[in-house]
Every structure is written in structure tokens, then in C-alpha cells.
Simulated scan of single mutants.
Amino acid sequence: MFVLARRVDLAEVIGAALTAKASGAGARTIAAGLGRPVETVRGWLRRFRQRAEHVRVYFTVLLVDTALDPIPPALSVSGFADAVAAVLGAWRAAVSRWPDVGTVSPWRLAAAASGGRLLSPLWP
């Protein structure tokens, strides 16, 4: 799965925006860097922020269940950044166990693991 439900952009594009926000970038800067409308990017960020705790829990459990020697990510200053770290950590855990997973981006894995509903209010 390479897209998220009700989204036109690829999971990697949305994931790049989420990762940039977790690193402290603002919506305008992210939108300009991705060549997307600022309102579209704000929508992604808003929805992810609303779902951040659910995403963090889901992907932390996935990380722990997948990794051979799991080390969950430490909490940071924001729930948003924690959720992004959990997604990336789950991807790294999957790659450490199944190296071919490394050919798939973390955000494509997140799209598949969520059934394309990563930003959906009804998931998980």
C-alpha cells in the first residue's frame, strides 16, 4: 500500500511532512519544500496531531512485537514527535528482522500496517 485513505499524495510525501514537523519545521516551510498547498499540509499535520497518541501506541506495540531485542523510543517533548519516532522505530525493527523490508520506506510500511488509515479518525 502506497497511499493513505482519502489522500491524493503518496505515503512518503505525507510522511516527509510529518517527519519535518516532528523536527520543528512549520507548515509553510514544509509545504514549500514539498511543493504542496499549505492548507493540504496543515490538514495532514492537524489530523496526525489528533491521532498522535493512538499512532504512538500502535507502532510502539508493533516495534516491541517485531524486534528481536526491542528498545522503544524514549519520549520527547511532543506527542507528535513521539508518534513519528514510533513509526520510524517500528520500521527499523521490521528491517532488523526482515532485511528486505528496507526496500520499503517507513511511511509505506506505516500505510500498510494501518490499512491506509494512518490519518483516519476511526483507526486503530
Results as ranks from 00 to 15, higher is better:
74 A>W: 14
59 F>Y: 12
58 Y>G: 01
41 V>N: 01
52 A>Q: 07
46 R>W: 00
74 A>F: 15
44 W>S: 00
40 T>D: 06
50 Q>V: 11
15 G>I: 05
28 R>T: 14
15 G>Y: 03
54 H>P: 05
66 T>V: 06
73 P>E: 06
35 G>H: 04
61 V>N: 02
80 F>G: 09
39 E>H: 05
82 D>S: 12
27 A>V: 08
23 S>A: 15
34 L>M: 07
54 H>L: 14
61 V>K: 06
27 A>Q: 04
79 G>T: 13
81 A>V: 07
25 A>N: 07
60 T>Q: 05
59 F>K: 01
47 R>H: 05
61 V>I: 13
67 A>Q: 14
17 A>P: 09
73 P>F: 09
48 F>W: 04
27 A>K: 03
53 E>C: 06
26 G>P: 11
21 K>E: 08
71 I>H: 09
22 A>N: 08
19 T>C: 04
74 A>N: 13
43 G>F: 00
38 V>Q: 08
62 L>T: 01
24 G>D: 06
29 T>K: 11
58 Y>V: 08
54 H>R: 14
19 T>L: 11
60 T>P: 00
16 A>M: 08
72 P>L: 13
32 A>D: 15
25 A>V: 08
49 R>T: 11
56 R>Y: 05
62 L>E: 03
38 V>T: 13
77 V>S: 07
27 A>E: 10
39 E>N: 10
35 G>I: 14
20 A>Y: 02
50 Q>P: 02
55 V>G: 07
72 P>M: 12
15 G>L: 03
31 A>G: 08
34 L>Y: 14
61 V>F: 00
57 V>K: 04
38 V>K: 02
51 R>F: 04
33 G>A: 15
43 G>D: 05
79 G>D: 14
74 A>R: 15
41 V>R: 03
24 G>Q: 07
58 Y>S: 09
45 L>F: 01
73 P>D: 07
28 R>W: 02
35 G>A: 09
70 P>E: 10
42 R>P: 02
48 F>G: 00
24 G>I: 14
27 A>G: 08
77 V>G: 07
73 P>A: 10
24 G>F: 12
30 I>P: 11
53 E>Y: 10
47 R>L: 11
38 V>L: 01
64 V>F: 07
63 L>R: 12
56 R>E: 15
45 L>V: 11
76 S>E: 10
71 I>L: 09
29 T>C: 05
26 G>Q: 14
28 R>Y: 02
16 A>C: 05
69 D>R: 13
43 G>K: 01
79 G>K: 11
55 V>I: 15
39 E>P: 00
80 F>L: 10
15 G>C: 05
27 A>Y: 00
73 P>V: 11
23 S>N: 14
59 F>L: 04
77 V>F: 04
44 W>L: 02
20 A>R: 13
31 A>R: 09
49 R>S: 11
72 P>T: 12
69 D>W: 07
83 A>S: 04
27 A>F: 03
83 A>P: 06
62 L>G: 00
59 F>V: 03
53 E>W: 13
24 G>V: 12
69 D>C: 06
50 Q>Y: 02
37 P>F: 04
66 T>M: 01
56 R>C: 05
15 G>A: 04
20 A>E: 08
31 A>Q: 07
16 A>G: 03
33 G>D: 14
61 V>T: 10
55 V>S: 04
18 L>M: 08
46 R>L: 06
